[in-house]
Amino acid sequence: MHANIPFSTSRLDGLLDDAGIDVLIVTSKHNIQYLLGGYYHFQFDYMEAIGISRYLPIFVYVKGELDKSAYIANRNERDSVQNRTGAGYWMPPVVFGSSTSVEAMTLALGHIKAIATPTLRVGAELSFLPADAADVLRRERPDCPLVEAMRPLEKLRSIKTAAELGILREASERVVASMMDAASRTRAGQSKREIIDHLRHAELSRDMIFEYALVTMGTSLNRAPSEQRLAPGDIVSLDSGGNYKGYIGDLCRMAVHGTPDGELVDLLDEIDLIQQAARAPIRAGLDGCEIYAAATEALARSPHGKQMHFVAHGMGIVSHEAPRLTASGPIPYPADDANAPLEAGMVISIETTLPHPRRGFIKLEDTIAVTPDGYQAFGDDARGWNRIPA
């Protein structure tokens, strides 16, 4: 087996077996990137529409038979693939020639017909499968039951390798450093859009892709970009997602123009107590729901606990990926992993928010990696009140 295969074939085979999938048709950008070790054709990094259709790369994986895998590539993708394989990275056999989603699926099915038995249970990512490509799949293989493949692929990604953990640590540290850079450049009178622009440039200067910033200012609880201007003494919440080598650094830190008063110090300390309580029990083997149990107990003791919001969710290539620990968070999904033990290599974002009606939006969000006997916090700096120069 090629030494550079970027995922565990045995783990994937077991997950597909559990899901009742014989052959996998992968069409989402994030899973293509994951299964090909970070590769995605550069021409479509930002926009997948072209001509009358869209770029649709497809990775075909036959359970237990890696040698029958194939990557269905756009006809303009030869140079990218050549650079990738020339640098020694693993690639399955590549089928070039697609320029539309229908052509891509037709080529994928032609490959499956050539290498597999007629009746198969096909796993597909239904949220990431264009309707016209799905029509081709159903029309050409009416004998093949279609199975949702999101969950096995999500579980495959949930256990990070040492290399992935290193990237996530770096992503987290770079996001926090960018926030501090943005705070140092911010002045009274600047708009929220200008502050976000400071953060964007700070992340870009650190070789990141700026994805988003949720920013509040003063007593407002509105986190969208606007022309609201920073007044003397205002607090600022910086919650940003920056992408580094395909992985998301997603953290939140607080800043204040001038010097925080005693009440602000106490409120942020109160939030930090919840954060510390939630992370304290984390280790491999702990049921995921115990993170919520620890946070709930701390919230019950907190003076503002009834006004606070706590959430814990998986992190990696996708925000809010497995482990999924709650069915009542801000992003709707089932709590499939709440009663399952955490595993070393999982990465969890924990966040506590206090939307204070008089002082404003106060929040901390931290990135925690599960280890065999505890946890590691990534980008764990600047968790107090960071100063915006007066």
Rank of each mutant, 00 (worst) to 15 (best):
M1C: 08
F7D: 11
D18Y: 02
N31I: 01
Q33L: 14
Q43P: 04
G51D: 11
S53Y: 01
I58Y: 02
G64K: 11
G64A: 09
Y71H: 04
Y71F: 13
N74C: 12
R75D: 15
D79K: 06
S80W: 07
G88H: 13
W90Q: 10
V94K: 08
G97I: 12
V102R: 12
E103F: 06
G110N: 12
G123R: 07
A124L: 13
E125I: 06
L126F: 15
L137E: 07
C144W: 14
P145A: 14
V147R: 00
I159T: 12
A163I: 09
E164C: 06
S178M: 07
A183P: 05
R193S: 13
E194N: 02
H198K: 06
H201M: 12
A213N: 02
V215H: 00
V215E: 00
M217D: 02
Q228K: 11
G249M: 04
I271T: 10
Q275F: 05
C289K: 13
I291A: 08
K306V: 07
V318D: 11
A322Y: 08
A322P: 04
R324T: 07
G329I: 04
A338R: 06
A340C: 11
L342M: 07
V347C: 01
I350E: 02
E351Q: 15
Q376V: 15
W385R: 07
N386D: 03
I388T: 07
